[in-house]
Amino acid sequence: MSRYIFRRVLQLIPVILGASAIIFFILSYSTQDPVMMLLAGTDPTPEQIEMTRQQLGLDKPIVVQFFSYMGGLLRGDLGVSYNSGRPVFQEYIARFPATLKLAFWALFVSVLISIPIGIVSAIKQYSWFDNFGMTFAMLGVSTPNFWLGLMLMLLFAVKLGWLPSGGYGGLEYLIMPAVTLGTSQAGLATRMTRSSMLEVIRQDYIRTARAKGLSERVVIIKHALKNALIPIVTVVGFQFGHALGGAMITETIFSWPGVGRLMIDGIHKGDRPVVIGCVIMLCIMVSVVNLGVDIFYAFLDPRIKAGYTK
């Protein structure tokens, strides 16, 4: 098992390296010249421009820049923000707790909604509850979360005044962002739970379980759900990885000071080190969470575990 994990981590390295390279090269060929953005408002002489370029290391060949950047990444050095002058890594770490908090509570909301609705919809296929649940899920996957967030804000902050419209603080600040992100994740997760459960409850071993005289509750929870969980965990894990990397849209709407907003602000300000750093960190987060999900499979399905240890 630990050998498997080790191997998977090793396999992750080229993927992260490759993804970082893609991101780095794409963003380095940006049409926006960071030097000009940095010096905007002043009236720079060509010498000033050249000097800034040298200071930023942008005069070197792109490949050299990339490798020195990757070297920095390994040491936790993602360069310095053009705007604040602070190390990008520090800024990222400073924003990370807010993102973690949002991602966790969104996951909570999503699981709380999707798993029960998905299970009941599958058991009572084609019932009114199923229709209702699937309509909800369909609306969930079809509603852009920026709009959902704004509508919640319109209702609960503007009209009713129950919740603050944005910012960071106690529970009242968390509710709307978590619900916005969680509900939009729940749509897909509900559909996945239902289809996975439908697949499993048709299996012969469910009939065996019923023939033992087990109650329907035990049949569903002990025998069906554990088998149905793998695709569900995949989807939920994927969504959690994304949210952990920064829920750009939700954070933007509610002025939530997470890494997603750090990145979007960076884009608007042409702060290239911040953007590259955030995007690469996000990719790493997603990959690591996916790896975690893969390892978690082993605890769900002994066949997968057997495959790992081989």
Binding site: G18, A19, I22, V275, V286
Partner: peptide
Amino acid sequence: RINDIFASIPNLLLAITIATALG
């Protein structure tokens, strides 16, 4: 292999990256 590397970058993020670079 190459495809997987691209796929490891979340969809929206890759789109943002390219859009940022291109304008």
